[in-house]
Amino acid sequence: MGDIFRTVPSRPTEVAADSVLDRARTGDDEAFNHLVAPLRRELHAHCYRMLGSTHDADDALQDALLRAWRGLPRFEGRSSLRSWLYSVATRVCLDTVAARGRRALPVDLGPASDSAVVGDAPLDGIAWLGPYPDRDLADGPAHPDARCEQREAVELAFVAALQHLPGNQRAALLLFEVLGFSAAEIATMMNTSTTSVNSALARARRLVADRVGPASQQHTLRKIGDARLRQIVDGYATALENADADALVALLTEDVTWSMPPLPAWYTGRRAVTDFAVRVPLSTCGTWRHLPTHANGQPAVASYLDPDGSGTHRAWSIDVLTLRGDRVAAITSFLDPEVFGHFGLPASLP
């Protein structure tokens, strides 16, 4: 991407790109928007990986583009515009991490509950990890491997693991492993030494390897195939809508987990998950409706709840399904109706 900003007179498209850059440096906002538009989605995904929240990613990207707009006259073209924008966005994210800390899932806060916690209340004062809509991923090459890599880099286990890294290690790992920058380029971006970057990378790789399984969700999904995947997603939604505990349990691995940020309680193993399902969502919540969606490169279901028989089912949660083989190994239900807009989903269903 950055190559188009080099001045090579024999290539008219590159000359035109330099002309747009020159106009942007003089304060032409249309020219600036033209330059950053192709990079906006991938920068947003980078901010999400760093911060674990679409809301924070929105704010960070807006702040980064404002800083870039103000600093563009000082951009000398020694690196590509893409590299420079990633430098700006990364610094914004590092400032946010330093001020706010990491985002968590219920599993990070305490042991699993052995039985259903009825009336569990949201835990205040915790910055919770949030889901990421696949529709926000960059429009990458059509090659399946490229699409797979994009989705692997936002998978829930990976983003959750990143939150356990200090900001500098998080940034170094993402810039090197996901985005393909060299250690020397990262050192320039982060105003440090190549030795420090390599040290941060080594520590980050060890921690992430300990927390992320050997097989990515993309590998699992390719092995399952689209037809079986649709059966699993439809079966999950139908079991909840019909209050069918047996159908739900048939979809689950023996060691399945279910968590519902911002509720602190979480469950592991079929017995505990079944007890929760029977005593809460399948009996006492109300009636459910669902729409299939995709989040964090994984199958997901948008859940809508009518708690009182009013006839209107309102946005309730985005349930991200993590699969092992052709069974559900984890359900992460993000109870945040505000994210439905990011997914392009309606606020209610009949």
Score class of each variant (00 low, 15 high):
225 G>Y: 04
10 S>H: 00
38 P>D: 07
96 T>R: 07
65 L>N: 06
321 L>T: 10
269 G>H: 01
313 H>Q: 09
325 G>V: 10
45 A>C: 08
306 D>V: 02
297 G>A: 09
338 E>K: 10
75 F>V: 07
340 F>N: 09
328 V>D: 05
145 D>L: 07
50 M>V: 04
126 I>M: 10
245 A>S: 15
206 R>Y: 08
146 A>S: 08
92 V>C: 05
59 D>V: 13
258 W>K: 06
189 M>A: 14
176 F>D: 04
89 A>I: 12
45 A>M: 12
207 L>C: 08
73 P>Q: 13
73 P>S: 13
174 L>E: 04
40 R>Q: 15
300 A>V: 07
254 E>A: 14
69 W>M: 12
132 Y>K: 05
244 D>G: 01
311 G>E: 06
111 P>M: 04
279 R>S: 15
82 R>S: 13
107 V>F: 04
136 D>C: 13
116 A>F: 07
261 P>V: 11
141 P>N: 01
338 E>T: 14
196 S>T: 15
41 R>C: 08
225 G>A: 10
10 S>C: 03
78 R>V: 15
220 T>H: 04
153 A>K: 02
3 D>A: 08
309 G>W: 06
273 V>A: 06
199 S>P: 03
326 D>S: 15
262 P>G: 05
311 G>C: 10
216 S>K: 00
192 T>H: 09
326 D>I: 06
187 A>E: 11
178 V>H: 14
209 A>C: 05
209 A>S: 13
186 I>E: 07
265 A>E: 11
274 T>F: 07
185 E>S: 10
150 Q>I: 01
189 M>S: 13
128 W>G: 10
273 V>D: 10
130 G>Y: 05
343 F>T: 09
57 A>G: 08
95 D>Q: 01
58 D>Y: 14
37 A>S: 11
234 D>A: 07
77 G>W: 04
63 D>Y: 11
276 F>I: 06
289 R>H: 09
141 P>H: 03
167 G>W: 01
25 R>K: 15
41 R>P: 13
281 P>R: 12
137 L>T: 09
2 G>T: 09
281 P>Q: 11
54 T>N: 07
246 D>K: 06
75 F>P: 07
18 D>A: 14
148 C>N: 10
174 L>P: 00
174 L>M: 12
168 N>T: 08
263 L>D: 08
16 A>F: 09
218 Q>V: 02
73 P>V: 12
344 G>L: 08
105 L>C: 02
32 F>I: 04
16 A>H: 09
207 L>F: 01
219 H>W: 11
337 P>H: 00
315 A>P: 13
142 A>F: 04
180 G>H: 02
114 D>T: 05
205 R>D: 03
147 R>P: 01
301 V>F: 02
229 L>S: 07
12 P>W: 02
336 D>M: 04
195 T>W: 14
